[in-house]
């Protein structure tokens, strides 16, 4: 056993929460590399990170499980293999039950679950349950150099970070409340509307002053 492991405490000790601010991501993949060091799925990285469109921008899209209050993945699972624990963590598919149908992979509005062909199973981010259940921060948020992935209390967030926490996303008619928060400038504008994403403005609309945008 790990001699330095603290004693078991309540999950997500001290009401620490996970916040993802994609706009800050620098695409370094420290999270991807650290994810596969997580004890519950060693060697398999479950976080997602890819360029949005490298030809146009260095913007990258990191994605952890948002831990929906009412998880679509669990509702569409024919095998009843995806469970939420007392702390609201949506866990990876129960290995004995998962029948590898990929319904969750295709239905998750955030595109989170991964299907692994060789074990014929789905696996997904469980917010580093081996760490959070003993009071440690998840691997990805621990290492993230830009702190696009952040783990702390709401008070700490308000003291140290700009922006406001947002726990709701809209996908067409569907509003999805999540345990993991993202960051918006103004919460009163309502849930993050994902289907209008392609209208997002460019931060540097003409970086080299070429005059053609």
């Amino acid at each position: 056993m790990n001699p330095a492991a603290p004693t078991i405490v309540d999950p997500l000790v001290g009401a620490r929460m996970f916040v993802i601010d994609q706009s800050r991501c620098i695409g370094c993949e420290a999270c991807v590399q650290a994810c596969e060091e997580c004890g519950t799925h060693r060697g398999q990285s479950l976080i997602h990170l890819e360029f949005v469109e490298r030809g146009a921008t260095t913007q990258t899209a990191p994605m952890v499980c948002m831990h929906c209050d009412d998880p679509t993945c669990a509702e569409v699972c024919p095998a009843d293999a995806i469970k939420q624990n007392e702390a609201g963590i949506v866990q990876s598919a129960l290995k004995p039950r998962c029948i590898g149908c990929s319904n969750c992979v295709l239905a998750c509005p955030f595109g989170v679950p991964k299907y692994f062909a060789l074990p014929d199973q789905m696996m997904k981010c469980d917010m580093c349950y081996d760490r959070t259940s003993v009071g440690l921060a998840p691997m990805c948020a621990s290492v993230c150099p830009s702190q696009a992935l952040w783990f702390g209390t709401e008070d700490e967030f308000e003291e140290t970070r700009s922006g406001q926490l947002m726990h709701e996303f809209r996908f067409g008619n569907q509003v999805v409340p999540t345990k993991v928060a993202t960051v918006v400038a103004d919460r009163t504008a309502g849930p993050v509307d994902v289907m209008t994403a392609d209208d997002a403005p460019r931060w540097q609309d003409d970086p080299f002053g070429l005059g053609d945008g």
Partner: peptide, 15 residues
């Protein structure tokens, strides 16, 4: 986490 410069943060090379 306790080292003040990076407080646990690492890049992929460090990981």
């Amino acid at each position: 986490y306790d080292f003040p410069f990076n407080e646990g943060k690492l890049c992929p090379k460090g990981v």
